[in-house]
Design a protein around this nucleic acid. Structure first.
Lengths: 214, 214
DNA sequence: AGTGCGATGTTACTAGCGGTAACAAGAGTC
DNA sequence: GACTCTTGTTACCGCTAGTAACATCGCACT
């Protein structure tokens, strides 16, 4: 039968694909997101057309690469987010997990967030339009779902949860990006400061001397 | 004297530079951030080397272009941020100003946030490393300064203000990006939801039925 | 055996990019 | 008139993403 044959072939192709992805990973981690297809092919010990047969174009390869890392990060975030602890604790541990991840592998992080969008060759540049940083979107949606499941927000809870999901993820991302560049404080301090912000300390704090009119 | 002469020449060069920037603006707004130097030169009615004499390389041109828009946006944000009103009002009007700006000119916004980082030609690709989105950084620092000037945060206020500045800007950015893509609600609703988040509604809300253990 | 077929791999190429060198021409100064 | 500075050009380099055409191995089928 050709079913078993096709299965064998497909399995072999899948293994090859994984090997190629691992090679691409090494190159991207070494050369940054602007790693060339030639360099990736060389690292894998083959030549360009094979890469194109497997992934279509550069965008396809990058999307496959990003999906792997995104899935891994989201898994660890989910674990922190769904832990049986009180809300503040869960928020802090999620923040800490994210920050630890980007601290441990900053190149992966940069690749996921700024994946070298401007493909220059020809008109076949992969459509960057909306998919600028899929990881952020996915994290936002994920968080929104958790919020909506577990927090009582009254009517319009779904919409509010989505706004908050994307907003909180953006806060975490921007603060993490800045922190990674300047390292102005420890990770624990950053986590506490952000959690304090989410816990309404901005509203609770008083005005500074000089009055609100100035 | 050659002082007046040089002044004349410089003024003429500056005018030319401004014209070139406006042409580049038109092309970037039409073709997106991956607009080619050839296209920009053609739009300006000249050829490439002139662009390179004025701006050094593509990164220089993009930086000059970004600075113009960034300055303009920051000016209007500062106005909202420094208005003589109470804190919540100021926060809401700043959020509204930002969202109105990105809604009015989404292409400008995309250019500022995702400026086609991966320059492919040669090794002279402009160093994207840390300067991924200078606008976000500048906004974060600006906001941090305002917070530190006007809000009483006790000791370590400076560091806390900077974390919050970058965090809030990131929240605004991510939520705005998502909102611009999906338009799930009106601008006013988004502003209120985000302000509610900053005002601690996440901490104040109760758990949903099912208990915190689930 | 031989014959086809589908995957794997190569070399050699195109078109377009960022960036530069070399050269031509106008304008003001001595 | 010669000298210099700025503005502009054409023609090129090395690189990129992506493709076409050809070679080759393994396997099934008759």
């Amino acid at each position: 039968m050709d079913t078993t044959q096709r299965t064998d072939q497909q399995r072999s192709a899948d293994r090859r694909r994984r090997e190629l992805l691992e090679a691409a990973d090494r190159v991207v981690l070494r050369d940054g997101p602007q790693a060339s297809m030639n360099a990736i092919a060389a690292e894998a010990g083959i030549t360009k057309p094979i890469l194109y047969r497997h992934f279509g174009d550069k965008g396809g390869l990058y999307a496959a690469l990003a999906k792997r890392h995104t899935d891994a990060l989201l898994d660890s975030l989910r674990a922190a987010l769904d832990a049986p602890a009180d809300r503040r604790e869960r928020v802090e541990s999620t923040l800490a997990t994210y920050l630890a991840a980007i601290e441990a592998r900053p190149q992966v992080y940069r690749f996921l967030m700024h994946p070298a969008e401007g493909s220059t060759g020809g008109d076949h540049g992969f459509d960057v339009g909306k998919h600028s940083a899929p990881l952020l979107r996915r994290m936002g949606e994920e968080l929104a779902q958790v919020i909506e499941e577990r927090v009582d927000l009254g009517p319009e809870s779904q919409q509010l949860a989505r706004v908050w999901g994307h907003g909180i993820v953006g806060m975490m991302h921007a603060a993490g990006d800045w922190w990674l560049g300047e390292r102005p404080c420890s990770r624990a301090e950053l986590v506490r400061s952000l959690a304090d912000l989410l816990w309404g300390r901005l509203a609770a704090a008083g005005d500074k001397v000089g009055g609100p009119g100035f």
